[in-house]
Design a protein around this nucleic acid. Structure first.
Length: 668
RNA sequence: GCUGCUGUAGCUCAGUCGGUAGAGCGCGUCCUUGGUAAGGACGAGGUCAUGAGUUCAAGUCUCAUCAGCAGCUCCA
């Protein structure tokens, strides 16, 4: 006798073996038809999976309306896509086919090179499978049987995965729909018919088997599916909107930066408008540095290779550096990939007492790294970039306070820009890797220090093993961009290694008149100016807040009769420190306004004969439109107040994540 | 670096079967003198990414190189 407790508290009793579907059918034919998944005591189960014969279970029947069922349906759609591909092409080897945050993909190996031209055929075949409404059947088999089955199916990846990745599993499950059978943990919707027609293949790209670049490369087909066609259309529209907001597109349209093949790929040329944004941001950072006790320094763009041999960067990152500049006598220089060794030399330029500490040396330092060609992307991944870098030299006792100050500065800066969509990642070492330098005890101490600082600040942070720098653990601010990609921007890194005897042997004279080893903190609140501003462009969709806008206000004349007054207004605005231009073309006012709106100019001051007579300007706000006439002084005061407050009036709405969900658990 | 796709005017793109280059926007000149999202006319502008090859003939077909895009791998 089984007692089923439904979410409303009602109880139903069954003598014979039943499935959640049977329970649904008992309640009503509508529910039986609508249910796609069930939860038994909080665990997802297939709708047709048998319930226990005896005892008591809490059962929840899930329909399409429950958001949890969407991922399950997408996973089922991935199987259907694989089935379609196997029907259409020969020699298909199946790898993994998980869901992602917004869709799903499946990795295949097959002789035919898939392209977008193949998508309509695959989609049509999927449509047939959906129409056939094939049942998803679950089969539970032993390891040996599973291996045998996969061998019979000729699926070598699956055999390997059972033997390695799933070595600990005693029994394994498969799902079958029609002629297609795949190793899979589940769960699945009852039948292919529930997928409906709101699915779409999106792109095809290479991916490595088990993410290992030394192994076979597969063809990955990305796709998405929704229960409702309207949701699919909305999703596709969002993707298109995100594309329009891409910093590479806006950077060109708004004349912020360019990249010249003649100069070289991955090297950013800042156009005047982009340079204003950067300069304004740098000035803001400088005010922060002054109030937080930093000292500015300048160091050259190159350094002798020996410097980077001591630091460990040269041997460790030789593949991703520009090759050394070599002279006849054998002296070699490196374009600097890091600022820290130079700053260390400044620290070492004189003996330091504990009374001098902490020493905080700051520089907008430009560094060069030879990123592999496939990585280059707009401003976010480049070969030359400027860090808002600083190095703090302090005693062990000062570490917590200094680390905290760095985290707070980063939070302050991000908050000032309305960037709240980020997480803090604590990059700790991977205990199974040998890429790190320094003693385990030192690492333990450093990791514990960072963790306790974050806890004391109530800063929600997630520990990720293997994300540490080779010389020490770090706290990264990882920001999500408008299409859901994550970017590491700000970073604070603790370093016991570069100061160590094996490296630079940095010391200070303590109160006991003896030398002591000090500790370094590397930190950059923005990270790279290039990457940060790339993400910032997308964050604001190119519409910068007034204090950052390259052109803050544009004077528009109604007709050429008002040119003289327009130029007078323009001069007054420039004298008040505003970044201003004037549009004196012989075009109609509507055309001038349209151009200003398209160029995302925050304010337009329309001046005509009425304004000249009254000494006013007609203020047009980019967001709110025409505000009517205002005395010029009042208009200037209004803008100055908004600039001084660094007001952020509008941030572009973020698109949902388009990246695969790392926590995917449904892939075998 | 790997797999796939793409490369035509300043920008966005069209160019059929291989037959000697097109549009819109922008830009220049002129007309229009206007009050809150595109007034009109005329004009300039291209070594079709680069280099080979096939062909009577290549923007179009083939190969290589470079660059960009999507993803993977990497990221001090």
């Amino acid at each position: 006798m089984l007692t089923v407790i439904l979410p409303d508290g009602s109880r139903k009793q069954f003598e014979n073996s039943v499935s959640p579907y049977d329970v649904a059918a008992g309640i009503g034919p509508g529910l039986a038809k609508a249910a796609v998944l069930a939860e038994v005591d909080g665990q997802q189960v297939d709708l047709h999976a048998p319930l226990p014969k005896n005892g008591e279970v809490r059962l929840r029947l899930l329909t399409k309306k429950d958001p949890k069922t969407l991922a399950v349906m997408r996973h089922s759609a991935a199987h259907v896509m694989a089935q379609a591909v196997m029907r259409l092409y020969d020699g298909v080897q199946l790898a993994f086919g998980p869901t992602t945050a917004t869709g799903f993909y499946y990795d295949f190996a097959l002789p035919h090179a898939l392209s977008e031209d193949d998508f309509p055929r695959i989609e049509a075949e999927m449509q047939k499978i959906v129409k056939a409404d094939e049942r998803f059947e679950r089969l539970e088999v032993s390891r040996d049987e599973a291996i045998k089955l996969c061998q019979e199916l000729g699926q070598e990846f699956k055999v390997e995965h059972i033997e390695t990745g799933l070595a600990d599993e005693k029994s394994l499950s498969f799902y079958r729909q029609g002629e297609f059978i795949d190793l899979c943990r589940g769960k699945h919707i009852p039948s292919t018919g529930h997928i409906g027609s709101a699915f779409k293949l999106l792109s095809v790209a290479g991916a490595y088997w088990k993410g290992d670049a030394s192994r076979q490369q597969l063809q990955r087909v990305y796709a998405t599916a929704f229960f409702d066609k309207k949701e699919l259309d909305a999703h596709l529209e969002q993707l298109a909107e995100a594309k329009r907001r891409d910093h590479r597109v806006l950077g060109k349209q708004l004349e912020l930066f360019t990249i010249s093949q003649t100069v070289g790929s991955g090297l950013i040329l800042w156009l005047p408008r982009g340079a204003i944004v950067r300069q304004t941001l740098e000035d803001y950072i400088k005010t922060q540095l002054r109030t937080r006790g930093y000292e500015a320094v300048y160091t050259p763009h190159i350094g002798r290779v020996e410097l980077y041999q001591i630091s460990g960067h040269f041997p460790y990152y030789s593949d991703s550096q520009f090759p050394p500049i070599e002279f006849k006598d054998g002296e070699r220089f490196l374009l600097k990939p890091m600022n820290c060794p130079h700053h260390i030399m400044i620290y070492q330029a004189k003996p330091r007492s504990y009374r001098d500490l902490p020493v905080r040396l700051a520089e907008f330092g430009t560094v060069y790294r030879f990123e592999q060609s496939g990585e280059l992307s707009g401003m976010t991944r480049v070969r030359g970039f400027t860090q808002d870098d600083a190095h703090i030299f302090c005693t062990e006792e000062q570490v917590a306070g200094e680390f905290r100050n760095c985290l707070e500065m980063t939070q302050t800066v991000l908050a000032a820009l309305g960037m709240n969509d980020y997480r803090v990642r604590l990059g700790f070492r991977d205990p199974n890797s040998d890429k790190y330098v320094g003693d385990n005890s030192v690492w333990d101490r450093a990791e514990a220090a960072i963790k306790s600082v974050c806890e004391s600040m109530n800063l929600p942070a997630t520990i990720e093993l293997g994300e540490a720098a080779f010389y020490g653990p770090k706290a990264d601010f990882v920001i999500t961009d408008c299409i859901g990609r994550e970017w590491q921007l700000g970073t604070v890194q603790l370093d016991y290694n570069l100061p160590s005897k094996q490296r630079f042997g940095l010391e200070y004279i303590g109160a006991d008149n003896h030398p002591h080893q000090l500790v370094m903190i590397h930190r950059a609140p923005l990270g790279s100016l290039e990457r940060f501003i790339g993400v910032l462009i997308e964050h604001f969709a190119g519409a910068f807040p007034l204090w950052l806008a390259p052109e803050q206000v544009r004077v528009l004349t109604v007709s050429e009769k008002s040119d003289a007054y327009g130029r007078e207004v323009e001069q007054r605005l420039a004298a008040a420190g505003l970044r201003v231009t004037g549009d004196y073309r012989g075009a109609k006012l509507n055309a001038k306004i349209r151009d200003g709106q398209v160029q995302l100019i925050p304010y337009m001051f329309v001046v005509g004969e009425k304004d000249r007579e009254n000494g006013t300007v007609s203020v047009r706000d980019r967001l709110d439109g025409d505000l009517g006439p205002m005395p010029l002084d009042a208009a200037i005061a209004k803008l100055r107040a908004e600039i001084d407050a660094k007001t952020v009036r509008q941030v572009a709405a973020r698109q949902p994540a388009a990246q695969p969900d790392r926590n995917t658990q449904n892939e075998y």
